[in-house]
Amino acid sequence: DRYEFNINGVHFTIDDAEEELIKLIEELLKRGARAEEIEEVIRRWER
């Protein structure tokens, strides 16, 4: 599934997002994580 979200006006799209990654990102968003922090999480996840 495609997952899309915005952080401070920056648009992100993840194709074939796994449910666990989506939950992790949503938790980070609730905590007010910065875009750079979430980008790093996504990079690590994709390795």
Rank of each mutant, 00 (worst) to 15 (best):
D1C: 07
D1N: 14
D1M: 12
D1S: 15
D1Y: 09
R2Y: 07
R2Q: 09
R2H: 10
R2D: 05
Y3R: 02
Y3P: 03
Y3V: 06
E4T: 07
E4R: 02
E4L: 02
F5R: 00
F5W: 07
F5N: 02
N6K: 09
N6G: 07
I7S: 07
I7D: 03
I7V: 15
N8V: 05
N8G: 15
N8Y: 05
G9V: 03
G9Y: 02
G9A: 03
G9F: 04
G9L: 04
G9M: 05
V10E: 08
V10F: 10
V10G: 03
V10A: 08
V10T: 10
H11M: 12
H11G: 10
F12I: 08
T13F: 12
T13P: 02
T13H: 14
T13S: 14
I14S: 02
I14G: 02
I14A: 02
I14V: 10
D15Y: 09
D16Y: 10
D16Q: 11
D16P: 13
D16V: 12
D16L: 11
A17I: 07
A17C: 04
A17K: 11
A17P: 14
A17L: 06
E18I: 03
E19A: 10
E19I: 12
E19D: 12
E20R: 06
E20Y: 04
E20M: 08
L21H: 01
L21V: 02
L21I: 06
L21E: 00
L21N: 00
I22C: 02
I22M: 06
I22D: 01
I22L: 07
K23Q: 14
K23S: 12
K23G: 11
K23F: 12
K23Y: 11
L24G: 04
L24V: 14
I25R: 00
I25Y: 00
E26I: 08
E26V: 10
E26H: 13
E27I: 12
E27W: 08
E27K: 14
L28R: 06
L28S: 08
L28N: 06
L29D: 02
L29G: 03
L29Y: 06
K30I: 12
K30G: 11
K30F: 14
R31W: 08
G32F: 04
G32I: 00
G32R: 00
G32Y: 04
A33T: 09
A33H: 05
A33N: 03
A33P: 05
R34F: 09
R34M: 14
R34I: 10
E36S: 08
E36L: 04
E36V: 07
E36W: 07
E36T: 09
E37Q: 08
E37L: 08
E37K: 04
I38W: 01
I38T: 00
I38Y: 03
I38F: 04
E39H: 13
E39W: 09
E39G: 05
E39V: 12
V41Q: 07
V41L: 10
I42N: 01
I42T: 01
I42P: 00
R43Y: 06
R43W: 07
R43K: 11
R43S: 12
R43Q: 13
R44M: 15
R44E: 15
R44W: 15
W45L: 01
W45Q: 00
W45G: 00
E46S: 03
E46Y: 14
R47I: 15
R47K: 15
